[in-house]
Design a protein around this nucleic acid. Structure first.
Lengths: 396, 396
DNA sequence: CTTCTTTGTCCTCTCAGTGGAAAAAGACTG
DNA sequence: CAGTCTTTTTCCACTGAGAGGACAAAGAAG
């Protein structure tokens, strides 16, 4: 299949494409109203987009009691690939031009195996999605990696948990392999963009998105835009000091947030508690599986295990303390909690909320919702698709 | 004198005015190059601005070896008023249209006396500047207040240290009194804008500006824009927890940064040290003046007093610890330290740097300058002038 | 004094965009 | 069911922004 090559020629076309992406099919008249453009001008731009093949006619619109109107929509053959590379697994999904997920695959994989092995896996998964008939090819791909990225060229820089990736030309390499434009970003930023596009943050221009998985990170959205910082490491809150003279951390310091609470830390704590005989529930699970994960702690807590609940509460307090500081600092309109440990659910959220509402300024917390992400594991891949579509739907 | 009433009619004119403000007088040809606009179009816009009186001809430009060119500059009669209301003093300054300070007055005053008394003082000082022949009137005024501001309407909201100001229509009231447009913002944001316009942050789009005075606050500039947060309280870092179970703070919590280090806390500590006989130097000054301020500690430190040095070092460590977290979080390209305690100078800076470079991620600190502000007490008033000029030099 | 360079001015041409008229195609009404 | 009212689409003429070139003005360099 012939892939999309055209790009919007001006800002009108770019805005039109984004409007169609976010709002779905629309009649010319509706588009004109929303774009604040005369109908004649709009018709011209729509015609040009029709010629390029970026948009297509889509039958009749719901009648409002007048001449029947024909709907316009993004070319339904467009396909975006969203890739979310986590520390311990890879997610790959195909989306429609409106960023709805058509197919989603997940595969456990250690990111430390290096870019070559990981990309082989990614390409294999993308191939499966194609073979399933969900896409003839891809018009663009967004990739999230668990570390800082020099955004303009899409290259990871000094990523702590994926040493083999430092300086690897991810964007360039994948663009070659896939034969389509590629954009690369930090996985947490993509999660934030996902929740912004289709999740709880749809109506909020300033919010924080805290992802607690194997590690811990934070996406920052200010004025509707993702803030990446000067070197792409903004949001790296895992190594902020949470406990003075606390536990030693892999980074060389002591008391880092990540050392005290994250998927990895929680599993470690749970295993210790099991071995010390503090919790029958956890000990039983440890016996059965030979190891424990955050999911086991969640299950134990759901079963009413006091030790598991205490672990969650304590962890939530640490995260909450850091978030409280960030809330005072940035004064966001919403805080979203996501990532692997969202399975801990309400217990975690309660601990975080308690701490934030206690420690932050009343003015900053007065109307501050702190909620779980809505999209779960889809947030990352939707965000990735959003990233590349934002790029492609901008004037070249 | 007749005051400026016109506003730029379009974005070209707005850009032109800002270019002339930031770059000084320029010939039409130079302006055309910098604006990326054809000379004919530029000439038209310049002519229109000349008609409105916003800009004026300014003699011949330095020859570059061709036909001599006439310089264009902002109307030299324009005057902006910059007002910086601190916790314990008021600064008022008059600037040229290029935001150079023509006259600057400072007056001790307790902000808790309330808006009416403070504005009386401000108007009196503005009157003195007029009487000195520095201005016939004001074309706009920027006001900084030491607390959160609902920016669009220029009203302080729930300011902790100035309770009488809550909800007072500062913008409206001062606009009436002065007879010119007024914009209101947090004093720390204005300091950041000042350093951005004419100080150390001239070339940096993402930076933090930490102001340590009676209290402690932080201006956030991301992507060249001041970030104010959803309720205008962004940057309020004084009540982030610096010491778990630390000193009680006026806000009701314990261990707030402001309780452990700020102008007020430092003075308190110094007096305690003097009374306990820990420092001959401080005790002597206490004897003489009956009280101690941050300036006394600075002087004692300069004289080599160990206790004073230790106070500064300890305070710098606390601030540095918080800044380290913010640096990891926001990944700025520069950190500026300013405010009343900059008199503590290099000792303070050294303590902060040590802590930040030790605790933040290497990637975030690799090229991170941490410097003192360049403008001192002028930063606030210059920032205030910048605020109102940005407003007036935007299309209505 | 001649030639070259830079700047400012004038004029024309193009094209984006508006607004209105007319046509198309439905819903509603007596 | 015919006529009237709405809504949408298409067409067309008009306006104004802006580009670009030609030319004049005014200096510098040789």
């Amino acid at each position: 299949m012939r892939r999309m090559t055209a790009r919007p020629a001006n800002t009108h076309q770019a805005r039109l494409l984004k409007l169609l992406r976010d709002g779905g099919p629309n009649s010319r008249a509706q588009l004109g109203d929303r774009m604040d453009l005369s109908r004649s001008k709009l018709a011209v731009e729509v015609d040009r987009l029709l010629e390029t093949g970026l948009v297509a006619a889509d039958g009749l619109a719901a009648s409002r009691g007048g001449r029947r109107s024909h709907n316009i929509r993004l070319n339904p053959d467009l396909r975006f690939l969203g890739v979310d590379i986590g520390a311990t697994s890879v997610d790959v999904a195909v989306t429609t031009p409106e960023l709805d997920i058509l197919g989603h695959l997940n595969q456990p994989m250690d990111v430390r195996e290096g870019p070559v092995a990981v990309f082989e896996q990614v390409l294999d998964m993308a191939g499966k999605l194609k073979a399933a008939g969900l896409a003839g090819g891809f018009d663009g791909a967004g990739i999230g990696v668990p570390g800082p990225v020099r955004f303009p060229d899409g290259v990871p820089v000094a990523p702590p948990i994926m040493p083999g990736w430092d300086g690897f030309p991810v964007r360039e390499a994948l663009s070659q392999e896939l034969g389509c434009p590629v954009m690369v970003d930090n996985d947490v930023n993509l999660m934030a963009m996902g929740e912004q596009h289709a999740g709880v943050a749809r109506t909020t221009a300033d919010f924080l998105c805290v992802k607690i998985g194997t590690g811990i990170g934070c996406g920052i959205v200010a004025g509707g835009q993702v803030h990446r910082g000067t070197t792409g490491s903004a949001g790296d809150i895992g190594h902020i000091q949470a406990v003075p003279d606390g536990r030693p951390c892999a980074c060389g310091n002591r008391g880092c947030l990540e050392a005290h609470f994250s998927g990895a830390a929680l599993a470690r704590d749970a295993m210790q508690a099991a071995q010390q005989g503090l919790s029958v529930e956890l000990a039983g699970r440890f016996e059965t599986n030979g190891t424990l994960t955050a999911a086991d702690v969640a299950a134990a807590a759901a079963a009413g295990d006091a030790t598991a609940l205490e672990l969650i509460r304590e962890g939530g307090t640490h995260v909450g303390q850091i978030i409280a500081g960030l809330v005072s600092f940035l004064n966001p309109g919403l805080v979203v909690i996501g990532g692997g440990v969202t399975g801990l659910g309400h217990n975690l959220l309660a601990a975080i909320r308690t701490q934030v509402y206690r420690q932050s300024l009343p003015l900053a917390t007065r109307n501050l919702p702190i909620v779980l992400g809505e999209l779960g594991p889809s947030a990352g891949v939707i965000g990735a698709a959003r990233l590349i579509s934002d790029h492609l739907f901008s004037p070249a």
